[in-house]
């Protein structure tokens, strides 16, 4: 999907950059945000085609960001990234409008496939 714009929001630098690199290698135009607050600001103003959003972040969590986005009527497809032990977050995520989720530990290749599918559906 060359040229499609994706926002990756994760406070863990290694994971954020790994995802950005993997999506970038597939031709996506990837922007990153270091926490929930800046992720929300970028998502509201950046006109993205998809968002990969970590759930567990200090301050504003991924669920808070997603909830704020949907309240602002931003319908960009969102894929949640959550720890295996916090699968209950997935329920909360879908309740506020998530489109898909991936649990950590995750395969970046599988995540790319899910992003591709998400953007095709969206």
């Amino acid at each position: 999907m060359p040229g499609k714009r994706i926002l990756v929001v994760d406070d863990e630098a290694d994971i954020r950059d790994l995802i950005a690199l993997k999506l970038g290698s597939a031709g996506y135009d990837v922007q990153v945000a270091l926490d929930g607050n800046s992720g929300l600001q970028q998502a509201l103003t950046g006109n993205f085609d998809g968002i990969v959003l970590d759930v567990m972040m200090p301050g504003m969590s991924g669920i808070d960001v997603l909830s704020a986005l949907r309240q602002a009527e931003v319908t960009t497809p969102v894929l949640l990234l959550t720890a295996k032990a916090q699968e209950r977050d997935v329920e909360a995520g879908f309740a506020v409008g998530a489109d898909d989720y991936v649990t950590k530990p995750f395969s970046p290749r599988a995540l790319l496939a899910r992003v591709n599918a998400l953007l095709t559906r969206g």
């Binding site: 290694d14 994971i15 790994l18 950590k104 995750f106 395969s107 970046p108 290749r109």
Partner: peptide, 15 residues
């Protein structure tokens, strides 16, 4: 140290 840290969060080909 960097590679070990990443291994906690990834599976598949990246692992």
């Amino acid at each position: 140290s960097i590679a070990t840290r990443m291994l906690y969060d990834v599976t598949g080909e990246t692992r």
